[in-house]
Amino acid sequence: MPDETRDNGPAARSVAGDEVDVAALFEALREEVRRCGADPGGAGDADTRRAAREEAERLWPVSAERPLRLRPGVRGGVGTPAKSVLRKMMRWYVEPLAYDQRSFNAAALRLIDDLEERVAELEAELERIRGAGPR
């Protein structure tokens, strides 16, 4: 049975009171999506694009190496060394895939940079044309 005492935010409270402003709810959801960066098709301002680029720069180098989380107790004492050995044995299988992914990510970021540059040039050219006005 669901927990009725849990507060699910203003949307849930307005539904409980039978007063739903759909437009306001939709706009609030849209703003929430924009804030969390999950709106890839959104126009976004320069700060949003810069933040997305910084995140892409941080995440593009995919690797098979990740730090092991140490578990307490016997399971950690036995599991951690076993995982370490297994990771070293499987690295030969996983690392070529990670290398290909890193190469793709780097190429995609270069293409995105090139496209952004070209769009900026086209926007500047459009402004020059609009500034010249009709002849």
Rank of each mutant, 00 (worst) to 15 (best):
V62K: 13
I129Q: 11
L25E: 09
G37S: 01
A38M: 11
E4N: 10
G42Q: 03
G131L: 09
M90P: 00
G9R: 02
A38R: 10
G9T: 09
P40A: 08
P61V: 02
E55S: 08
F104M: 04
N105V: 00
G76T: 06
S14R: 13
C36E: 12
R49L: 14
G42K: 02
A43T: 14
E116H: 11
R30V: 03
R49I: 04
E65W: 11
E27F: 02
G37Y: 01
R49W: 14
T5I: 02
R34M: 08
D7S: 10
E125A: 11
R118I: 10
P81M: 09
F104E: 05
W60L: 08
P134R: 11
A64E: 11
R6P: 00
E31F: 04
A51I: 06
S103W: 03
R13G: 03
E27T: 11
Y93I: 14
T80K: 01
L29I: 12
R110V: 05
D18I: 03
V33W: 10
E54I: 03
K83I: 00
A64T: 06
R110Y: 04
R128W: 06
R53H: 07
R71Q: 13
L70C: 01
G17A: 15
L126H: 14
L122S: 09
I129T: 08
A24P: 01
D100Y: 07
D39I: 02
E121G: 03
S63G: 13
A16R: 08
P40L: 10
A43C: 07
D45V: 02
R66Q: 12
R102F: 00
A108W: 05
P72M: 10
A51F: 03
I129Y: 13
G79N: 02
G44K: 01
W92S: 15
R75I: 06
S84D: 05
L59R: 15
A98Y: 00
A56H: 05
R118T: 11
G9S: 04
R135L: 11
W92P: 04
V22N: 03
G133D: 09
E32F: 12
A46T: 05
A43V: 14
G76V: 05
L111M: 10
G133W: 10
L70H: 09
A52E: 06
P134H: 07
L111Q: 12
A106G: 00
M90H: 07
E95K: 07
D100G: 13
L68I: 08
A124V: 04
F104L: 07
R71E: 15
A108N: 03
R110I: 02
E27M: 04
G77W: 14
R135M: 05
A43R: 15
P81K: 07
D100W: 08
N8L: 15
P134Q: 06
E116S: 13
A98G: 01
R35F: 06
G76I: 07
P40G: 09
Y99E: 15
R130K: 11
R30L: 08
L115G: 14
P2T: 07
G73T: 00
A107N: 07
D3L: 09
V33D: 02
A38D: 05
G131Y: 04
R71N: 09
I129H: 08
D18A: 12
A106F: 05
V62T: 12
A52Y: 01
R69P: 00
E19G: 06
G42N: 04
V20W: 03
